[in-house]
Every structure is written in structure tokens, then in C-alpha cells.
Design a protein around this nucleic acid. Structure first.
Length: 592
RNA sequence: GGCGUUGUAGCUCAGUUGGUUAGAGCGCCGCCCUGUCACGGCGGAGGUCGUGGGUUCGAGCCCCAUCAACGUCGCCA
């Protein structure tokens, strides 16, 4: 090839390139064989270029006839404008084409199990089995490109703000709390195990003790729990820790990072500052500690409207403070059919509700399951409380406060879905603060931490430790986006005496503390600075930014819901010799 | 582990009240075609209806069990 030939990508050519000698590589996207003329669309990540083959060059033409979808080619030729009337405005390179002077078939492809050049969406198990083909599709190329840009912007932001990106190890000590650890057996130290980090929590705190000041890392984390649409057994966080900061300093830095990223990557201005809710407020108004604020529907307490009324159930519930009678306004809900209300009732039941009471407001009339018992007084009280008008419906969830709140919160999202209010192109961030430091484990009845044991209480609340620990508020903050928890952060305990007190309050003995956290307690004892930080889930950020609802669609090689990699077929058995070296024996061999 | 949805051709799907030989589009194979770009025309191959059992004269369809994928609850400091 002579030096005047320019190597280009498939999406690069425009009319101004006409006359240039170029070469490019790619996959056969489509073939249109007209008998005496063949068109091949050659595709790479950047786009598509149309290549033409003329029978005048019999040898090249004959080879072009053998091309099939996803064969890999190198093409060289002189760019020319397409004949007038044959331009394709649908693609960026549609004004030009390249008549092939040279065609190298670099590799052949089997017939793919699904068509790359199609809008048909293959089932996910097929996509994951042939992930390398799925990755060629526009959706994955777009999502992974976006994810790259998000991560790049995050790194740039923290670099601009004097953070150091520091790698922490993946082979660490198990700290038997919280989620299940992935364990890695040690060959050198037979019978012992490393644990993969659930997060670099302790290590980043030790970096603060190490005087690094401001740390960040794009960190891989591992939790051996069942996957979900927004949870993978291994996932990526932007992990941040700062020394000599208070809660508001961390919050300001983290929300500035998101503001920067959203502006730069999505060209979206997000509010400054971001809205803040207390945990109690979020639960009361939205029935969730990760409220979706893309729509303003709120849970309204209407017990008062029923107090002393003839409606036995609600009236009775209204007499006790531990209960809630919650109304949800369903805009335009009066036009729903009985069938649709029955479907909503089934949904409510699936959330654990015993049933669903509802009323539809019409001028001078109420309909619905409890329409008959709504007096004029109750009707106007309900309308006043919820802002409902004629044409709207109210759904009622009543019962013990915790469960009623939870059910109503989920029903709220269901209404949002049905009214199309959860718009994937909208972004509603908020902070949730004021979480309790401790909570009671429902099973054991023991006091346990609600976030992690390194979280500091609000200053001045230490005295409650022995009298009313559940009343202590943590210096803990969650960043929420569109109903997803992006991540949590906190100010940490930096004084060893106090950290020991927290551990003991959690029921650990001095021996247990020293065994599990001795190195950390010791580190705290050598002048640990006040510090705090946060970690945000990159997968979830990318998922929401991409308008996806599943993090597998922004992850190159995700696990399925059984935590399997179906492409590699992992996990898998290992040779007996490997087990012997590790001193392991499989008690119950897997079925053959 | 519970609940829900789905499972029919390589892919995406349809399949009525249980009734003849289970269909479509795309893809694939062959032939034809010099301006297509979702090229077109003609012809063709391709099915254990997830699996096992049952009911029935007869099952893709009904019943039971089971497996798998997805969603969700439990779980996820």
C-alpha cells in the first residue's frame, strides 16, 4: 500500500473525503447482492461504510460473492460520492461509498445465532451466552461508551480536586459482618482464606490515617448475595474518602462530582444544591428511604378524616398512633374500570396488603370500594388533604405504620409507572440524611448497625449510647437518583476509644474486636484524623444515565441471576490437583 | 427458600373451544438480478411445542411434577 493511503474508521468518511485513497477494517454488517453489483456495509464501532463491488474486477468480485454476515474484512479503495439520488441520509457516511480496489477476507464467521444488524432484541440468556456478538450491537456499544465517559469524567473531577486514585488490594482479610464474603483459599497458608472486599472501607480509612488526605478509587467490590436487576455479585464503585471534613463537606464534594459529570457527559444541569430529605421525612412522604422524586405524588395521612366516623376499620386504626391511614392520589383514576382497580388490588396484595380500598370522585358522587361510606364531610376532608379533584381516585393503605408505609411507597411507584411519570430521560437526585445509627434486628432482637460499624453519631448524642441507642442519629447520608440508592457515606469514628465503644454496644467482646479489627483499632490509635467519605455505584449511575433498567446492560460481562457467567460457564469445578494443593476436599461433589 | 411472568424453527413471535400434515417474519441454503441500503424475485431446508408423567378416541392447548431464564420478596454492614 502506498503512503498516500489513509487508514480510516468505518464511520468517518464524508463528502469532503471524496477522491481520497483509504483503507479500513470491519465486519460485514449487511450484504446486498444484485447479481451484477454487490453492496457490502462494513461496520466497526464508529459506524458503517458502504463498499461496492463491480464485476469488472472479476477476481475481487468473486470473493465478495462469498462474503457473509460478520465476516471480517479489510477494504481499500478511493472514496467517491454516491451517484445523485442514491445517497442514504440515514447514516453519517451516506453521501459516499468506496468501490473496492482491494478486499482481504481476514476471517470468516459462523452464521450468528442472532442478527447483529437487526432491531430485534434477542432474549437475555442468548445475549449473555454470545456476549461477544451482543457487544457488537448498537445498544451495548452506546452503553459501554457512555460508561467510559462517565468514569473518565469522575476521574477528571476528583483529579481536579486534588484527590489521589490509590489501588487497594482485592485479597484482604474477611471481616465477618454484613454481606457474605467471596473467599479465596490460600495455597501458601493452607486452611486459611482471603476475602474479596465488599468495599475498601477499612483500607480507605487507613489511607486517611496514612496521611493521604483525599483518596478516590474506581473500585471493584464483591458480595456473595443473590443478584437483582440493580445488583451484581461484583460491581464497581467510585470510592471516596476525605480527611478533616464534616458531613456537609463530603456532601458538597460528592454532589459537585455528579453535577460535573451530568453536565459534561449528558449536558444536563442538575440542581445546586440538591434537595435533602430526612430519613423520617422520606419514609413518611414517599414510603421509601430512596424516593423517586421524578414525580411529586406523596403519601398523605388521612386518619383524621376518618376519626370518629362510622367506617369501622379506618376509624379504629385512626385511634392508635402506631398506625397509618394513607391516601394516594391517582390522577384521572376515576376513569379506571373495575377490572383495572382489581388489577391494582392484586398488585397491592403482592406487596403484602390485605386488600385495597379506593374511592373515585365524580361531581356530587363517590364510587369505588368504599365510595358508599364516604360522607360529604369525609369527602371534602380527603380532597383538601390530598389535593384530589373530581375525576381522580384515592387509594388507601391502612395498618401498622411500618408495613402500611412500605406498601404505600411501592403502590406510589406503581401509580407512577402507570401514569408514565417515571421518565427515563429525567434525573431527580436527592440526599437522604438523618438515618438512625442502630436498628433492631427483627430476627434476633439484637441491636445492630444500620449502615456499618464505623459510622459516627451526630455530635452530642454519645450520651444516648447507654440509655436509648436506637434514638441516636448517624452522620450518614445516602445519595438517591430516580428511586435508586446510588450510594452511602458517613463521617467515621476516628477515636479508638469511641470505636471500641460502638463495637461493644453491638455486642462484640474485646477479644472479638481485637481478633477481627485489631489492626484497625491499632491504626486509629496513631493519630487518626477526623475523616469521612462515600461510595457511589458506577453500574447504577451508568444504568440510569443510559436510560436502562438493568445493570447487566451497562456491564460488559455480567453474571446472570444465578450468579453464573454463562459465556465462560463460571463458576466451575477445578482439577483435583488444584484442590489438593489448597488442602480442600469437596464434601458433596456436584452432580455430573 | 416464597411469589409472579415466560419457555413453540437459529432469532423474534402467532397458534381460536382439545381435532387433518404446527404457522409467520427475519436469518440460513440454491438459482436469478448493475444502484441497493430492512434490496428485490423464485425455490428449499429447518420443530422431542423446556423436560417427565397423567387425563382423553385425540394434547402445543387441560391436570400434576420438574427444569431454566427474567422480575420481585427474603438477603444485600
Amino acid at each position: 500500500m502506498d503512503s498516500s493511503v489513509i487508514k480510516v474508521s468505518c464511520g468517518a468518511l464524508t463528502a469532503s473525503d471524496a477522491g481520497k485513497s483509504v483503507e479500513f477494517n470491519g465486519w460485514v454488517h449487511r450484504r446486498r447482492d444484485h447479481g451484477g453489483l454487490i453492496f457490502i456495509d462494513v461496520r466497526d464501532r464508529s459506524g458503517i461504510t458502504q463498499v461496492t463491488f463491480d464485476p469488472a474486477d472479476a477476481e475481487t468480485f468473486a470473493r465478495a460473492e462469498t462474503l457473509r454476515s460478520e465476516d471480517v474484512v479489510r477494504v481499500a479503495g478511493q472514496v467517491r460520492r454516491r451517484p445523485p439520488g442514491t445517497e442514504n441520509p440515514k447514516i453519517a457516511t451516506g453521501e459516499v461509498e468506496v468501490p473496492a480496489a482491494e478486499l482481504d477476507i481476514l476471517n470468516r464467521s459462523l452464521t450468528p445465532p442472532f442478527v447483529i444488524a437487526s432491531d430485534e432484541e434477542p432474549a437475555e440468556d442468548v445475549r449473555l451466552r454470545y456476549r461477544y456478538l451482543d457487544l457488537r450491537r448498537p445498544r451495548m456499544q452506546r452503553n459501554l461508551t457512555l460508561r467510559h465517559k462517565l468514569v473518565k469524567a469522575i476521574r477528571d473531577f476528583f483529579d481536579d480536586n486534588d484527590f489521589l486514585e490509590i489501588e487497594t488490594p482485592d485479597l484482604i482479610k474477611s471481616t465477618p459482618e454484613g454481606a457474605r464474603d467471596y473467599l479465596v483459599p490460600s495455597r501458601v497458608h493452607r486452611g486459611t482464606f482471603y476475602a474479596l472486599p465488599q468495599s475498601p472501607q477499612i483500607l480507605k480509612q487507613i489511607l486517611m490515617i496514612g496521611g493521604l488526605g483525599r483518596y478516590m478509587q474506581i473500585a471493584r467490590c464483591f458480595r456473595d448475595e443473590d443478584p437483582r436487576a440493580d445488583r451484581q455479585p461484583e460491581f464497581t464503585q467510585v470510592d471516596v474518602e476525605m480527611s478533616f471534613v464534616r458531613q456537609d463537606d463530603v456532601i458538597a464534594m460528592m454532589e459537585a462530582s455528579m453535577r460535573y459529570v451530568w453536565q459534561r457527559v449528558l449536558n444536563e444541569a442538575i440542581p445546586d444544591p440538591l434537595p435533602r430529605l430526612t430519613y423520617a421525612e422520606a419514609m413518611r412522604r414517599y414510603g421509601s428511604d430512596k424516593p423517586d422524586l421524578r414525580f411529586d405524588l406523596e403519601l398523605v395521612d388521612v386518619a383524621d378524616a376518618f376519626k370518629g366516623s362510622g367506617f369501622g376499620l379506618f376509624a379504629a386504626l385512626a385511634e392508635h398512633d402506631g398506625n397509618r391511614v394513607i391516601a394516594l392520589r391517582y390522577r384521572g383514576g376515576a376513569s379506571l374500570s373495575r377490572r383495572e382497580f382489581d388489577a391494582l388490588t392484586d398488585v397491592a396484595r403482592s406487596f403484602g396488603a390485605p386488600g385495597l380500598a379506593y374511592v373515585s370522585f365524580f361531581p356530587n358522587e363517590n364510587k369505588g370500594s368504599i365510595g358508599k361510606i364516604i360522607t360529604t364531610e369525609i369527602r371534602s376532608a380527603l380532597k383538601r388533604a390530598t389535593g384530589a379533584h373530581d375525576g381522580d381516585a384515592l387509594l388507601f393503605v391502612a395498618g401498622q405504620s411500618k408495613s402500611a408505609t412500605d406498601i404505600a411507597g411501592r403502590l406510589r411507584l406503581e401509580i407512577g409507572d402507570r401514569l408514565g411519570l417515571r421518565d427515563a430521560s429525567k434525573f431527580a437526585f436527592c440526599w437522604v440524611l438523618g438515618f438512625p445509627l442502630f436498628e433492631r434486628d427483627e430476627e434476633t432482637g439484637e441491636i445492630t448497625f444500620s449502615h456499618h460499624p464505623f459510622t459516627a453519631p451526630l455530635p452530642g448524642q454519645e450520651a444516648l449510647f447507654d440509655t436509648d441507642p436506637l434514638a441516636i442519629t448517624a452522620q450518614h447520608y445516602d445519595l438517591v437518583l430516580n428511586g435508586y440508592e446510588l450510594g452511602s457515606g458517613s463521617i467515621r469514628n476516628h477515636q479508638p476509644e469511641f470505636q471500641r465503644k460502638v463495637f461493644k454496644r453491638l455486642g462484640l467482646t474485646d477479644e472479638q474486636i481485637d481478633d477481627r479489627f485489631g489492626f484497625f483499632m491499632e491504626a486509629l490509635s496513631y493519630g487518626a484524623p477526623p475523616h469521612g467519605g462515600m461510595a457511589l455505584g458506577i453500574d447504577r449511575i451508568a444504568m440510569i444515565a443510559a436510560g436502562e433498567t438493568n445493570i447487566r446492560d451497562v456491564t460488559a460481562f455480567p453474571k446472570n441471576q444465578q450468579a453464573r457467567d454463562v459465556m465462560m460457564d463460571a463458576p466451575s469445578t477445578v482439577p483435583q490437583k488444584a484442590l489438593e494443593e489448597l488442602g480442600l476436599r469437596i464434601v458433596q461433589p456436584p452432580p455430573a
